[in-house]
Design a protein around this nucleic acid. Structure first.
Lengths: 199, 199
DNA sequence: TTACTTTTGATAACACTGTTAACAAAATGT
DNA sequence: ACATTTTGTTAACAGTGTTATCAAAAGTAA
């Protein structure tokens, strides 16, 4: 039945339009400017059509959260470095650059206003990212004969540091510098130092 | 003119009622459940009365943000410790306990969803808190003959760490443990170590 | 081609939201 | 007792997310 295939394609196209136009609005005017009616206007369909593709507005937010983590993971995946030391540094830097270049996206991903997700590990896209970090930390620990480090402890610390710096940056409403600041770099070096050297 | 005094008192009481009832709703059902009409119902006045005391809803949020930082600073101020080492540790712990015991308040203070404040230093209550942290770091650095450390760099790192850990904790929707976790404590010790010992 | 069925989409409503203009009533000053 | 200011209310405007109801288009079978 080619007819059903075509229908599925057409529906999928509408969904992609919803996503594209939504992002258009968000990028231009922020998440708070996004309303179902504005999406409907933009895609030139009536309001209830949107509810055929997203259960509610929160589901749209959820989509962008997952999408954000997927994009972040993708950027991290493209890192090519010689040493394990370099790798974890570059992961940190690409995290910073992501927050700097896609600030609107980052804000949505970590908006603590509305509780949305269950556990970090239950969201596949989040887990992918944290896995990538974990492996990098693991490798660095191993290559410096630190097999007995608590990796999950270090992973949590690592992510907390990254997000902490970005958050504080986001508090003052100025644009995040495109490249990691010295403060940030310094903290990453400290983290790596305590990871490599036994206590 | 005692009449004007009484009027001022009555108006002030209404304002306090607005604050109290607002907080009642927030504590019970979260920030998103707070609406002007619900406040009006609770204080048994009509809606426009609220606008006599707060310019708009954002002003109410702003009030709670400032109030939160004031309360946090107050808790930090009550710390009594023997050594400078102990002090910075206790500041970190009281930060954790604040976030754990007043999670709803903490969420409002750092909700990155709606941009609200200018610079950190322009909000007096924020500055108070960061000053308190800065002095503690300064003292610790001095008492270990580290006069040439960049205090602002360390302050930013310190706060980023604290907020980073809490944020990650807030992501997974479970309750924050009342007492600082080992991961958190470990990170604080690391921070203090790099602060005390020259690079 | 006609009749029936399913899918698809639009209209319009419901119950909210923040905000404010217009007005009535109470309190105060003369 | 009258005029004025203060105080608070009603009712509306323009928007929000969400959904029940219904019409039209598309597909299926005779």
């Amino acid at each position: 039945m080619g007819i059903n295939d075509r229908k599925a394609r057409q529906q999928e196209e509408i969904k992609q339009q919803i996503i594209a136009e939504s992002w258009h609005i968000i990028a231009e005017e922020g998440w708070q400017a996004l309303s179902i009616r504005r999406i409907a206007d933009a895609i030139e369909y009536s309001v209830p059509v949107i509810y055929k593709h997203f259960e509610n507005k929160e589901a749209i937010q959820e989509y962008f959260i997952k999408d954000g983590f997927a994009k972040l993971t993708e950027e991290m995946r493209q890192i090519q470095t010689a040493s394990d030391d370099e790798r974890i540094r570059e992961i940190a830097y690409s995290y910073w650059r992501f927050a700097a270049s896609r600030t609107a996206h980052y804000r949505i991903m970590f908006s603590l206003g509305i509780p949305h997700c269950e556990t970090v590990n239950s969201v596949a896209e989040m887990k992918q990212m944290s896995d990538m970090m974990r492996v990098a930390i693991e490798k660095l620990a191993q290559s410096h004969r630190q097999e007995h480090t608590d990796i999950y402890l270090k992973l949590k610390t690592f992510w907390s540091m990254l997000h902490g710096f970005i958050s504080i940056e986001l508090l003052s409403n100025t644009v995040i510098p495109a490249e990691p600041t010295p403060v940030f770099k310094d903290a990453i070096e400290s983290f790596m130092y305590t990871l490599i050297n036994k206590k």
